[in-house]
Each structure stands twice: as C-alpha cells, then as structure tokens.
C-alpha cells in the first residue's frame, strides 16, 4: 500500500490509491463485496433499524395500554424484538468476522486502520477536502474511501462490538447470574458496577448509530451521484464500476 501507486519519485497519485499494485483497466469493474459481505450488510442494516426503534422505545415506552395486564404483552414484544434483532445482528457479525479471514482483501478492510500508511492519511486529507468543497474532484477507490474507512472502523466494527458486549451484559441481567451471557459478559459489571451506567452507555451507543446512519445514507447517496465509482449498486451486486478512466 506504500509508494507503489506513485510514479517514480512523484507525490502525485495514480489510479486507485488504496490498494497496492492494482491498476484499473479502462471501464473497469471490480468485484469488491462478496456475497457474505453484502448479505451481512443488509441484514445488519435491518437489525439496526429494528434495534434503533425498539431501543428508543425501551428508554421511552409508548403510552400505556388499558385493561388487564394479563391481556397484553406490548412492552414485552418491543423488548423481544430488540433482543431478537440483537441476537441476529450478533450471529451475522460473527459470520462477518469469519468472512474477514475467509473472504477477499476487501472483506478485511473495516477491521483495521492502516494507521502507519502515509498514503492512506493523505487520502483521508484529500477526502476531507472533497467533503469541505475544497477540491473539485475526489479520488477513486475500490473499497471504502479513507474517510469512510475510519467511520466504518469506529462505528460499525467497534460500535457493533461495544453494543454487543453491553447488550449481552444487560441481557444477562434478565437471563440470570448463572446464564452463559452472565459468564461471558458479566465482567462488564466489574467495569461499571451499577448497571444503570451500562444502560446509559448502551443508550448513548444508540445515538451514535443513529448519527452514523444519517451520515452513512447521505454519503452513500451523494457518492453514488458525485463520486467516480458506483456506491449503492456495489452493495447490491458486489461489483464496483468506475465512471472514468483517468488515473485519479
């Protein structure tokens, strides 16, 4: 990923800057997101949608229903939907981790940041300028652009892990002290002995995800229109098509 994409001695970027040694051909289409990644993305999106709505309602329940308690299970269903979506999200996230090892190199991207790569940092800077309208044109990227990469790593990867851990820790309170959830995630209460604090964190996590979702959808639509490669379609077909053949 280092200097291979540069022309000799020049700091000028050529072609695709996030992958070492890969040159795009004219009218290129690259297979980026393999099926497991795409499936995970959309399942995750669906789960997150359910989790956001139900999570919010768990913090601020809807108006009371009338009649006998035995005749209703409204809040129970809300919580059930939250737990079910959380479990599904977790299973698919584990599958996604598995695929990071098994899939192509793009499947690994969101699990680490190329912190020591100067090229990557220059990409971050360039992309930031693009969003600040300081440059006329973005670079081309096969997978996530560096700015998106940062967002993915922190909110999707770390965010998911944080929400899964706090979520299961909270779930273990229902499941009981002897449950596997308590054995696996009970240590959270060593860090935060009052589970109200864990709830507060988990609830703040909800808003981090809401904020990310807003940015993510906007950025995806905008990039679909404005960038030099396909975006939304790529997450459906897996193919990334570039719209021009210029180097960068």
């Amino acid at each position: 990923m280092s200097g291979a994409t540069r022309t000799n001695g020049s700091s000028r970027f050529r072609g695709v800057v996030d992958l070492a040694g890969v040159q795009t051909d004219r009218g290129a289409t690259i297979y980026v997101y393999e099926a497991p990644v795409r499936v995970w993305h959309w399942v995750n999106a669906l789960c997150v949608a359910v989790l956001i709505v139900t999570g919010y309602l768990i913090g601020a329940p809807p108006p009371s229903v009338t009649g006998e308690a035995s005749a209703h299970f409204q809040f129970g269903y809300i919580r059930f939907a939250h737990f079910a979506a959380g479990q599904v999200l977790t299973v698919f996230f584990m599958m996604r981790i598995y695929w990071a090892f098994m899939g192509n190199r793009h499947a690994r991207q969101i699990f680490y940041l190329p912190f020591w790569s100067a090229t990557w940092w220059k990409g971050v800077w360039w992309e930031a300028k693009w969003y600040l309208f300081l440059t006329a044109e973005p670079k081309k990227y096969v997978a996530h652009n560096p700015l998106a990469h940062i967002a993915m790593f922190f909110t999707v990867t770390l965010g998911n892990i944080g929400m899964i851990i706090t979520g299961f820790a909270l779930y273990s309170e229902d499941a009981g002290r002897d449950s596997w959830q308590a054995r696996l995630f009970g240590w959270v209460f060593t860090l935060f002995p009052n589970s109200q604090d864990v709830r507060t964190l988990h609830h703040l996590g909800l808003w981090v995800i809401v904020t990310f979702t807003i940015l993510h959808i906007y950025a995806a639509v905008r990039e679909e229109i404005m960038s030099r490669q396909t975006m939304i379609a790529t997450m459906i077909s897996g193919e990334r098509q570039f719209r021009d053949d210029r180097d960068d």
Partner: peptide
C-alpha cells in the same frame, strides 16, 4: 406483569 404488558404510571 404491567411492565411486560406496557402499562405504566404516567
């Protein structure tokens, strides 16, 4: 039971 039913003191 009221919690699960969604019956709260408002």
């Amino acid at each position: 039971a009221s919690f699960d039913a969604g019956q709260f003191v408002e």
